[in-house]
Structures are given as C-alpha cells and as structure tokens.
Write a protein that binds this DNA or RNA. Structure first.
Length: 779
DNA sequence: CCAGTACTTAGGTTG
DNA sequence: TAAGTACTGG
C-alpha cells in the first residue's frame, strides 16, 4: 500500500501486521496514533470488514479524530462502521443492547461520581454509621477499586485480607456499605462508572452466547493507551480476543499515570504471558520535540526503576534549553506566564493556540486565568467541573433521567422538591421509609401515596400527586415527541426556567444561559441524529451517553484561538509548541500524598515526563516561593524533579533572581486583593464580550459577585417594621393580592393547614407559614 | 416550610 | 478559600 511509505520502518512493520497478537511500545511523540490509523486502514484494504473492528481509545475525542483520519483514507462509508470509543462508552452501548440478559432496563441510568457519593452518604446515614469514620471519599475509593479488581460485594465480605484491612482501619463495615450500595444501584436501574466494566465482565462470563456474538463481531481489536487499563478492562479485552487472537495493544509504560484509578502497568508487562507468540514493535524515534526536550525528559525518567527498555531519540534540532523560572507567589507565577505568552505572541508571531499551561491540580488554574484575563489573552480551561456536572444542568437532566428511568433514586431526590413545591425533607424521609418497607421505588410510592404511606396530611398528598401527574404528563410524550421540544417543555412546566429567570444576579443569569445552552445542545443533537428513515430523536436517545461526556468531547475544532489550560493528566496525547509546567514545588508536584511510597513517587515522575514531552519547541518550568492554600499563604520550595534534570539542558537564569522582595513578603493579603479582577466589573464584562460563553468553561458558581448595590440592611429592617398592617390569617384566602416583606407583591393560590401558596412574579411560587410570614393584603 | 447565618472541614489526578 | 451541613428565627 502506498500510504505505508509515509511511515518509518518500525511504524510500517506495526501498521502492516494483520493477524495475531501484537504490542506496540511507543515512546512519547513517536507517532503511535499514526500507526493505529494506518493499521486500521490497512486492515480494511486487506479485506477485513470494517464491521469487525473495535478500537478502544482513551477519550471519545481521540476516537472521533481517529475516525475522521481513517475516513479520509478509506472513505466515510467504511469508517462509519468502525466501533471506536472509550471502554466506558463502547460497553455502555453493549450493555444497553443486552440489558435484559442481566436484569437491567435498557434505559438504565449511568450514575456519575456525584450520584454515587450521594447514595453512599444516604446509606451511611441509614446504617447508622459514623460519617466521620465512614467518609464518602474513602467508601467510594474502596468500592471502586474492588469493582476494578472484579471483587463482588459478596466476595468482598468473604475476603479475609480485605476485611482485616478494613477492620484495622476501624471501618469494619465497608463491606456492608458495598452490599447495600450495589443493591440500591440495581434497584434504581443504575450503573456507576465502574459497573460499566464490572457488569460487562459479568455479562461476558455468564452468557457464553453473548460472548460468542461479540467475539465474532470484533474479530480485530485495538487498544490504545494500554498502560492505563485496569484489571477489569484487561479481562474484557482478553475475553473478547480469546477466539481470534487478533489483538493489538499500544502503550508506553513511561506514560502510565492512572494507577490511582486502578490502572495496572502489569497489563503491559504481562502481555507476553497471555500471548506468547505476540510480535513486539518499538517506536523510539520522537518526531515531536527538540533534542533538548527529549534528552531532558529521558534524564528524568531513568530515575524510575521499573520500565521496559527503550531509547527514545530524535533527529530534530537541538533547540532551546528548558527555562526554569522562580517567582515569589502563585499570583506572580501567573503574571509571569501570561506576560511571557503575551510577549512571545508579539515577538515571534505565534497564536494563542500554540500555548499550553499545564498543572498538577485543577485549583492552580485560578491564578493563571486571572493573569491571562488581565492581558486579554483568550484561554480555555479544560476539566474541572464539566458542563454536565453543574447544578442547574444536573437538575434539569434529572427530570429527563426520571422520565427515562422512573426507578432512578438519585434523580428523584434531586427534583422532588426542586423547584420548591413544598415537599420538604420530612416528607421525603417518610417516602423513603415507605419505599424501603414495601420494597418499591420512590417513584412507585409517589405514584400511589395512599397505598404505601400513612400519616401524610392531605396537603402533602396533593402536592405529591401533582408532582406525579406532572412527571406522568411528560412520560406519555416521551416516545412520540422530539427531544428538544420535550426538554423545553420540561424546563418550562417544571418551573426551572421561571426559577432561574427570576434570579438576576450574575450567577443566576449565567445559570439561565447554561440551561439555554443545554437546550441548544439537544437541538443540535436532534438535527445531527435525525435520519430520513428515523426522523424522530427522543429524549432517552439524547440521554444515553450524557453521563460519559467530558469537556474535551464537546470541543469545537473550529474555535481554537485560545491558550489551553489543563491538568497534566488531561494533556496526555496532546502536543503544543510552547508548554508551561507550573507549580513545580515539593508537596504540590510531586503531590504531598504521593511522596511516601516509591510506586506513587514514580507515577508522579512519569506524570512529569508526560508533561515535558507535550512540548515541541519550548518548555518552561516554574515554581513559586509561596502559594495560597485554603486562603492561607504558605511558603514553598522547588520540586525535586527540577534537580533530577541534567543541568546541561537547563537555562536557570530566571531562577536565580533574588528572593521575594520584602514588600511582597509582608503583604500576603494584598497580593490576593491585587489580583482579583472581579473588584472591577468591567473586567468581567470585557472578558465575556471578548471570548464568549464557549471559551469560559470555569463554573460560574465560583465567580465572585461583582459589586452591586445591595439593599442596606437597616433600610430592610425599617421596611419590615413599618409596613405594620399585617393581615390576620383569616383575610388570606385564595385569590387575594398580598405583599411580603422580601418577595414583594404576590397572589395567593391556595391556603391550607395554616400554609399559603403564593405566587410572586419576581421570585416565583412560595410556600409560606401564615403564623410567620407577615403578609399584608393589598388591592 | 424557607432562607439566612454560623460553623466545619476538605486538601489529587478521571470516565 | 469554598462547599457543605446544622441551626434558628420568621
């Protein structure tokens, strides 16, 4: 094939391999994506049916891009038949198809981390455990790693070493939490992220016919970033490949950075045990970076003990030395980076997209973005809280979820009283008890409150019934209504739109905009998915993968005129001409939590290796002598990783400045104040205008409110006490106009049990207790 | 029931 | 710091 000539010798050998097992060890920047793409094209050229190829990538974005490249080589029609995506999205799809075999609804919900943690919190409460001891994060981590090692709840309880470990940590009942958690997820028709892999294993193990079906379908399997697969993923691949053995894995042990979520580097090292006849290809020539960068990175990674022998080299020019920069504080660090980018753009005619700022932790983005914003440099922060995790988005989506899957407990709890409809914590507790006692879902209780509950008063029962009627009215439309139309109706009828539109604070406006953006996204999705044979795209169609989407997936490739800010983890696989690695300080990078064991420290070192090898032309390392942490200015010292680089590759002229000037040292508070752009609202407005909603991915809820004329507290008090003329409760009847000290004018919709339901045009519908709320009858 | 305030506590990387 | 929980007055 002609295109194979565009590859170097080992690349070509790997791409031309057709049958049998193979492993590609690909150094950073050595063209592994190219090999994967060409190999798939080559397979199809050699009469492999594109329907029979499965490619598992690390992100959905990587899959999309690879598909695009393959489409250019072999045509769009063929490329469309390829199965490409992350483990999670591919197997979620298969699990939906086979849902009935494992007792899940086809529309099962995917619980995200937040849903899982909320459920764990509930369970800890219900089991009467001490939440100081049984912390959500610990439980989540324990259960997650159990699942990733295919340890079921029962196996967990039977495993003496695990139980002993929990006991010695004074948490002997984690196993009970795990059992209950698994039960509740199942009852809710929900899978968490780890279940998507765990239950796939269960499916393939217990249903030989299903296994055979997918073995026959996926005769050729490719796995990218194999060093970051965990045991559960390893076993799925092994099962699927067992019949034909056409398995190609690609990875780099030096870039294994996901051990914390169960990734097992042994999967690479053990490949030859499972596939003794495999072929090994090593890609060692780096095409990405200058010689200095390649050599400096190599000088770091040799400090690690365990690795596959390889020599990464390049024929690129020597290039510049790696700059090491010392700054006084995290804010100064931000200023330095922003200024440096600004000057480089001016002096070297670079564009914004040529720059990336990489950091160890998401919180470090703050000082960077403040400085960039001051210089009007457009930027985009990837990661952190994603669009779909924002409260307002999750709230609306919870309606969609409950409609698609009425058993979804976490969705139910989010929306039963949002927007406020007078169904408070007490009532929800009662419903929960009724649901548990009768072994039915919360939804079933709400559908039939008289059957399952006792002691609910008439008013509450009415409200519950109204809620159930509303959800039902959506449910009857779900299969015959376009997703966008129904979503819009839900936002309106549920009261979410009204609630958000009433909030005129900047945060509130931003939340309303986000809802609009979600609706736009659904519209776009409908337009994309609709076909001539199947013009109707329903809400459940849209919901299938929503939980698995990340920021990078919704990235608009047309709109990349911005500096990229992301964690090093998120930068894996990417490359930029100019890279700034910031916060190179002890206890930050390497992280304080990783310096106690050799394996964890080695992973931090690999992370540093990944960071440096993202750079093509120039790599800048920076550290600050002091840094804010939880509102406190703390002293810092440079990272040991800087010392590990052979100094002949370094330019340390910017690291030998004098120590922090005295006036900065003494003025911890003013450093912070000085860099807060929100003091001046024009910054916010200017920024919004310039880069728009799309570029500004930081969650709006954390945006400090700019100055706004607050109602002076004393004036408020005067109003309350001078209004005087409070109505006797008997005057408050349905239909009358009233005034409330805080909510203003409103109309009484209903009165019962000493409570009034009042609609206020400015702040929506409220439930008010007549004995407290000072309502004045007007008009 | 609601909303404002006082207090606690986490602290890292992701699909 | 900032997010989340517990408490309290209307």
């Amino acid at each position: 094939m002609e295109y194979l000539n565009e590859l170097n010798t080992p690349q070509r050998a790997a791409a031309a391999h057709i049958k049998g097992a193979m492993m590609v060890i690909a150094g950073a920047g050595s063209g592994k994506t190219r090999v994967l793409t060409y190999r798939i094209a080559h397979l199809i050229d050699n009469n492999v049916d594109s329907f029979n190829i499965l490619a598992l990538t690390f992100t959905n974005k990587a899959a999309k891009e690879m598909k695009l490249r393959i489409a250019k080589m072999i045509g769009e029609g063929e490329a469309r038949n390829l199965w490409m995506g992350t483990f999670h999205s591919i197997f979620a799809r298969i699990l939906r198809t086979e849902a009935d075999k494992i007792g899940y609804p086809q529309n099962f919900t995917i619980y995200d981390t937040q849903d899982s943690k909320n459920l764990l919190k509930t369970i800890v409460k219900e089991l009467g455990l001490d939440d100081k001891l049984y912390k959500t994060n610990i439980l989540y981590g324990r259960i997650s790693s159990a699942k990733n090692n295919l340890i079921s709840p029962q196996a967990y309880l039977n495993n003496t070493s695990i139980m002993a470990e929990d006991k010695s940590n004074a948490r002997p009942r984690i196993g009970d939490v795990y059992i209950e958690y698994a039960k509740r997820c199942y009852k809710a028709g929900a899978m968490d992220f780890d279940d998507l892999l765990f239950i796939t294993n269960v499916l393939l193990k217990n249903h030989p016919d299903v296994l055979l079906k997918y073995q026959e379908k996926f005769k050729y399997i490719l796995v990218d970033e194999y060093q970051d697969t965990n045991y559960s993923q390893y076993l799925i691949v092994k099962r699927l490949a067992a019949r034909y053995g056409n398995l190609c894995v690609v990875g780099d042990d030096a870039q294994s950075i996901y051990a914390f979520r169960g990734a097992n580097i042994q999967n690479i090292l053990n490949f030859k045990k499972d596939y003794p006849d495999y072929n090994l290809y090593k890609l060692e020539q780096n095409y990405r970076s200058t010689q200095n960068i390649v050599d400096a990175a190599s000088s770091i990674i040799v400090n690690n003990k365990d690795q596959i022998e390889k020599k990464v080299w390049t024929s690129n020019p020597t290039g510049e030395k790696i700059r090491v920069v010392k700054t006084g504080s995290d804010n100064e660090e931000g200023k330095f980076v922003a200024n440096d980018i600004f000057e480089t753009i001016q002096n070297e005619q670079m564009s914004n997209e040529d720059f990336a700022i990489l950091y160890r932790t998401n919180m470090q983005s703050r000082s960077m973005e403040e400085s960039l914003r001051k210089l009007n440099i457009p930027y985009k922060i990837y990661g952190g809280q994603s669009f779909y995790q924002r409260k307002e988005i999750k709230d609306l989506i919870s309606y969609f979820r409950l409609i698609a899957n009425p058993k979804d407990e976490e969705a139910f709890k989010r929306i039963i009283n949002y927007p406020k409809r007078g169904i408070g914590a007490t009532t929800v507790d009662r419903l929960t008890i009724a649901a548990n006692n009768n072994d039915v879902s919360l939804w079933e209780v709400v559908e039939n409150p008289l059957k399952y509950t006792s002691g609910l008063n008439q008013g509450t029962t009415t409200k519950i019934t109204q809620f159930a009627l509303m959800i039902k009215s959506f449910k009857v439309k779900v299969e015959k209504t376009n997703a966008f139309d129904l979503a819009e109706e839900i936002a309106r009828v549920s009261g979410i739109s009204r609630e958000l539109n009433a909030d005129k604070t900047p945060e509130g406006i931003s939340r309303a905009e986000n809802i609009q953006e979600l609706l736009n996204g659904i519209k776009e999705f409908c337009d994309e998915q609709a076909t001539d044979e199947n013009p109707l795209v329903t809400l459940p169609d849209f919901m299938l993968d929503v939980a698995l989407l990340t920021d990078a997936d919704s990235d608009d490739p047309e709109d990349n005129d911005h500096v990229t800010l992301m964690t090093i983890h998120a930068s894996k696989g990417l490359e930029f001409p100019h890279v700034y690695i910031v916060g190179l300080e002890e206890n930050l990078f390497p992280s304080q939590l990783s310096i106690n064991t050799r394996t964890e420290l080695e992973e931090e070192r690999r992370l540093f290796y990944v960071a440096m090898t993202r750079a093509e032309k120039r790599c800048t390392l920076s550290y600050a002598m002091s840094r804010y942490r939880w509102g406190q200015l703390n002293p810092c010292e440079p990272s040991r990783f800087i010392d590990e680089i052979d100094s002949k590759y370094l330019d340390e002229s910017l690291a030998n400045k004098n120590d922090i000037p005295k006036h900065i040292q003494d003025m911890g508070g003013s450093i912070k104040g000085d860099s807060n752009p929100f003091r001046d609202q024009s910054f916010l407005n200017k920024y919004k205008k310039q880069s728009g909603q799309k570029t500004y991915t930081k969650k709006p809820s954390s945006t400090p409110a700019p100055h706004k004329p607050a109602i002076p507290a004393n004036l408020k008090k005067v109003t309350a006490s001078t209004t005087g003329n409070f109505a006797a409760p008997k005057d408050i009847i349905t239909g009358v106009q009233v005034r409330h000290e805080r909510f203003g004018k409103g109309k009484v919709l209903n009165v019962e049990n000493g409570k009034a339901t009042v609609f206020f045009p400015t702040s929506g519908q409220k439930q008010l207790l007549l004995k407290f709320a000072k309502l004045e009858v007007i008009g």
